[in-house]
């Protein structure tokens, strides 16, 4: 997997990742500096992480993929397996994005608020990075055109961050006469951003606000089984698109 080295080298040269790190560092430093209550900072940080991490992950990965097209073409004529090549690209991207996240958010969180909620924020941030990079690889593998690919990934981000929740809200209005606790659990699992948010919020005791739904959530995600379920679903969210990306990539013509 020597290729990862060249992928990383290429990413670091673009300076985008350094800007991302600096931005995250700035935001978390500002939040921890202005807010004396660490758990409140975590909450504010959560709001930012849930928007920025998926957005940057999905857009950065897509751009990187299209920019690496030449490199990929060059590598394809070499005795290198396609799966290895794509995995190297994937690992290179998530390694650098995760490193940026861990420096930008991880360090301040570990310094100022290394408790359950802080750690779970880091876990879900990393998982969201994986998930949205993986989705981006899938989209980019399918879509030949760069502009179209970036457009599709932006739409997907918009869908997961905003539209999905509107749909859920709409469904709640429509089916408000039915018991929805279990359904809500399902709805949450179908959107990695929601899953990440609920995962962190349950560590933050906000669940007491959620009344009966919260109790169901807490009961479910609070148990070891539920925790594994949440992590498992998030990992599935990362693995499945990557698997599909590899499948498309293996059959792709260059």
């Amino acid at each position: 997997m020597k290729i990862i080295r060249y992928v990383l080298y290429d990413i670091l040269r673009s300076r985008m990742i350094i800007g991302y790190t600096a931005f995250l560092l700035l935001v978390s430093a500002a939040l921890f500096a202005t807010e004396t209550n660490a758990s409140k900072s975590i909450l504010n940080l959560l709001n930012i992480v849930l928007i920025v991490v998926p957005l940057v992950s999905i857009v950065f990965t897509t751009i990187h993929y299209y920019n690496s097209y030449q490199f990929i073409e060059l590598m394809l004529a070499q005795p290198i397996e396609r799966m290895k090549l794509l995995l190297s690209e994937f690992l290179g991207v998530i390694l650098s994005l995760s490193a940026a996240f861990l420096i930008g958010i991880g360090l301040p969180v570990l310094l100022f608020s290394a408790d359950g909620s802080g750690i779970s924020l880091l876990i879900s941030g990393i998982l969201l990075t994986f998930i949205f990079s993986s989705i981006a690889f899938w989209v980019a593998a399918i879509t030949q055109d760069k502009a179209k690919g970036i457009g599709v990934t932006l739409l997907l981000w918009f869908y997961f961050s905003l539209i999905y929740d509107f749909i859920v809200l709409f469904l709640m209005f429509t089916f408000s006469d039915y018991p929805l606790e279990k359904a809500m659990l399902g709805f949450t699992a179908l959107n990695p951003i929601d899953l990440g948010r609920v995962f962190v919020m349950l560590q933050m005791d906000v669940s007491a606000l959620m009344g009966y739904t919260g109790a169901v959530y807490k009961q479910f995600f609070g148990s070891a089984l539920g925790m594994f379920f949440a992590l498992g679903v998030m990992i599935m969210w990362a693995v499945v698109p990557l698997f599909l990306a590899i499948r498309v990539f293996k059959k792709k013509d260059f």
Binding site: L43, L46, N47, L50, I51, S161, L162, D165, F166, V168, L169, M172, F173, S176, L180, E181, M184, F187, T188, I193, D194, R197, V198, M201, V206, L209, M210, G211, Y212, T213, G214, Y217
Partner: peptide, 14 residues
């Protein structure tokens, strides 16, 4: 009106 909506607390939409 819809206590379940609390699941969306702190989401981007809210």
């Amino acid at each position: 009106q819809m206590p379940h909506g609390m699941m969306l607390l702190h989401s981007f939409m809210v």
